[in-house]
Amino acid sequence: MRYAYFPGCSLSSSGYDYNLSLKYVAKALGIDLAEVKDWVCCGASSAHATSHLLSIALPVLNLSHAEKDGFDKLIAPCLACLSRFKAANVELEHDADLKKKIHEVFDYKYQGKVRVYHPLEVFLEMGIEKIRERIRKKLKGLKVACYYGCALTRPPKVCQFDNVEDPQSMDTIVKALGAETIDWSFKTECCGVSMTLTRSDMVLKLSNDILREAKEAGANAITVACPLCQANLDGRQRQIEEAYKTRYGIPILYFTQLMGLAFGAYPKELGIQKLITSPREVLGSVGLM
C-alpha cells in the first residue's frame, strides 16, 4: 500500500526517533511511505491564531502537492499537523465561501481528494492480525499508560476517530504486542505544548498531572503518538521533578518504538537511545534491552 507521507517539522529534529521507528514499522507491515514533495510547515497553532485563511491555506498547499502527484491517502504522524490537515479538508467541504477564497489564493485548484490518516488509524485498518503475525518478542511485563493527547480525537466532527473521551486504538495495539495497558483518566488531557516556550509554568503543571496520574495508576512506561507530547513529557521530565519535588523516571516511548521492539528490531534502529529519560531500567527489567 502506498501513502503520501507528511513528516512535519518536528520529525526532522526533536521527533527524529519517531520518524526512524515509524519508517521501520511501516516497512515491516508493507506500507510504502512516499514523502510529499517540497512540503512546508502546516502552521500548527500559530497560523490559526493570526489568520483563519492562512491556517487553511498552509495545509492545502501541502495537500495539493500530494494530489498533483496522484495520491489519495496521506499519513501525518504529528498531531498538530494531523488536526490542521483534517480541519482544512472538512472546512473546505462545508464552507463554499472559504473554498472560493482558497481557490483565489492558489493557481492549482485543490479538489479535496486526499484523505488524511494518523499511523494508528492505518495500522488498525490493516487489521490487528497482521501486527500479531509480525511479532517476534512479546513485551511481557511492561505496564503501559497510553497517552493520546488533544488532537487525535478532538474535535470529533473533524477527526472522526475512536472514542472522544476514552479512546482505545493505541491500547488495542499495545495489548496485541503482549504488554499490559492500564486504565487511567488522563488519556486525552492536554500537555500544554502550545505554551511550552512562553508559559512554561503551565506546561510543567499540566505535564506533572499527566505523569502523576500515570504513576499512580501503576504504569512503568507511557506511550505517545505525537512528537510534541513526547518532547514535553520526556524533555521536561527533569524540570517537572525538580519543580514538584518528586521522582518519576517514566520513559516516554512512541507507540511505533514499542511495535518495533516487539517486531524484533534493535533499540538503536528505533532511536531509543535518543530518549532523554532513559528507558534502560524499565526495558532491561523485562529483557528488552
Binding site: 526532522s12 517540497d38 498552509l58 483565489e104 489564493v105
Partner: peptide
C-alpha cells in the same frame, strides 16, 4: 541530536512566500 543547530530549508518555501503575500493582500 534532537535539536538541530541549523535550520532546515524547504524547496517549497518560495511558493509558500507567494501564498502568504497573496493572503496578506487579501
Amino acid at each position: 541530536g534532537k535539536l538541530k543547530p541549523l535550520p532546515h530549508f524547504s524547496h517549497g518555501a518560495k511558493e509558500l512566500r507567494k501564498v502568504m503575500a497573496r493572503i496578506r493582500a487579501m
